[in-house]
């Protein structure tokens, strides 16, 4: 029984533009906008709080512009928040930062890079965000291993081959660049890269959006099997409720930068409380 979260987020806020101090109190679902009427800043997300537990799969749903991807970008250190606290409890964090709880947003760029490399794996909707499209697929994965300090070339090659196998990529294409790969295969390379240093936490941002149904199904199977084998904790961002239903334990619903509802996934889908969630659930074909 895991009663302590592996990841905690408190009061996470991101505003694009120069905030005037009234932005948060003048935006959100109640005002039906995420643009501050006083200063025109865009409140991408505000006052976001949640926990992720060991082995758990947490879904974040919401339509385009709800701020769900912003949350992931913040947690992956791709953008910086206006304010917020972010904690991960894991032995790998202790190896990097020593003992004691530290707000990960306050770390040095070097420490953040180490955490991105060792503790967090991320798979983006668009493969070009996670991969160098003109460098060999094997090279893309090897890069992460090199950053982690692996220097033995034979060992690196072995590890890359192992990751290819795990993610069901054809080994004979290891030296080809991802630009030559199909969309589904590009996502597999991203997943292999994300898993290269066995991170305890994985972020998946709309990873199957834009893929054919059969390809999507196989990517979901892969994620499910990997989760079963490695039991890492996952945050999966998607607008697709069928993915949320099949994969997640709990779900957070976002609208216009705010969390409007959070609960057990079956409860969110069968007994949604917020009008927006009710609309979302009833929009399913």
């Amino acid at each position: 029984m895991e009663l302590f979260p592996i990841l905690e987020v408190r009061n996470l806020t991101k505003i694009y533009g120069k905030p005037c101090g009234e932005c948060i109190s003048h935006t959100g679902p109640i005002y039906e906008t995420n643009i501050c009427s006083r200063c025109n800043s865009l409140v991408a997300c505000a006052d976001i709080n949640f926990e992720l537990y060991p082995g758990e799969i947490l879904g974040i749903v919401g339509e385009s512009g709800s701020g769900k991807s912003t949350v992931i970008k913040l947690l992956a250190f791709d953008v910086e928040p206006l304010q917020g606290e972010y904690y991960i409890k894991h032995e790998k964090i202790i190896n990097i930062l020593g003992n004691g709880q530290k707000n990960l947003f306050n770390l040095t760029p070097f420490e953040k890079r180490q955490i991105r490399n060792q503790v967090i794996g991320i798979v983006y909707q668009y493969p070009y965000l996670g991969l160098k499209m003109n460098i060999s697929a094997g090279g893309n994965i090897a890069e992460n291993l090199l950053v982690a300090g692996l220097r033995n070339l034979k060992r690196i090659r072995e590890k890359v081959l192992e990751l290819f196998e795990k993610t069901e990529l054809p080994i004979q294409r290891i030296d080809e660049p991802p630009i030559k790969f199909s969309g589904g295969m590009q996502q597999r390379v991203q997943i292999a890269k994300a898993l290269s240093n066995n991170p305890p936490v994985l972020f998946l941002d709309e990873v199957t959006t834009g893929l054919d149904v059969s390809v999507k199904a196989r990517i979901l199977d892969l994620i499910k099997n990997l989760h079963h084998d490695y039991n890492f904790s996952i945050i999966i961002v998607s607008h697709d409720l069928s993915i949320i239903r099949v994969l997640t334990h709990r779900t957070i619903v976002m609208k216009l930068g705010r969390v409007v509802e959070a609960g057990l996934t079956d409860q969110i889908l069968e007994d949604p409380q917020h009008p927006y969630t009710q609309l979302l659930v009833n929009s399913q074909l």
């Binding site: 609960g263 057990l264 079956d266 409860q267 069968e270 007994d271 409380q273």
Partner: peptide
Amino acid sequence: LKCIYRTYI
């Protein structure tokens, strides 16, 4: 039953 299983609040 769904209330006991907390599919319903």
